[in-house]
């Protein structure tokens, strides 16, 4: 029966100020039930303040074959990397 249900990707925001982070996936008949299942599966120990569920079918993912063009740009252009800034002490979640 579970295989008849669409797959949903679950994103949980741990606390205010953070972004939603992918927590996992689950099966559910529709969005409302997916939200409830996500609450039961991923936030039972007070992990979250907000949940998103997204049908897995609407996610367009990069393909492993395209790994190099996507993720390995030439690293000789140092100006692309923000390494010239000092991170002030005490700043978290940057």
């Amino acid at each position: 029966m579970s295989s008849d249900w669409p797959l949903w990707e679950v994103f949980v925001r741990g606390r205010r100020g953070l972004s939603h982070t992918h927590a996992g996936s689950l099966h559910a008949p529709d969005a409302e039930m997916a939200l409830r299942n996500a609450r039961d599966l991923y936030t039972r120990r007070s992990e979250g303040v907000s949940i998103w569920v997204v049908p897995a079918s609407v996610i367009t993912a990069s393909s492993p074959d395209e790994k190099d063009p996507f993720f390995e740009p030439a690293s000789d252009k140092a100006y692309r990397h923000p390494t010239f800034y000092e991170v002030p002490e005490g700043v978290r979640n940057l």
Binding site: W5, A28, L41
Partner: peptide, 12 residues
């Protein structure tokens, strides 16, 4: 339970 997700929900 009919599906794993519901099993967790009922157990909760």
């Amino acid at each position: 339970a009919p599906v794993l997700e519901e099993e967790v929900a009922l157990a909760n």
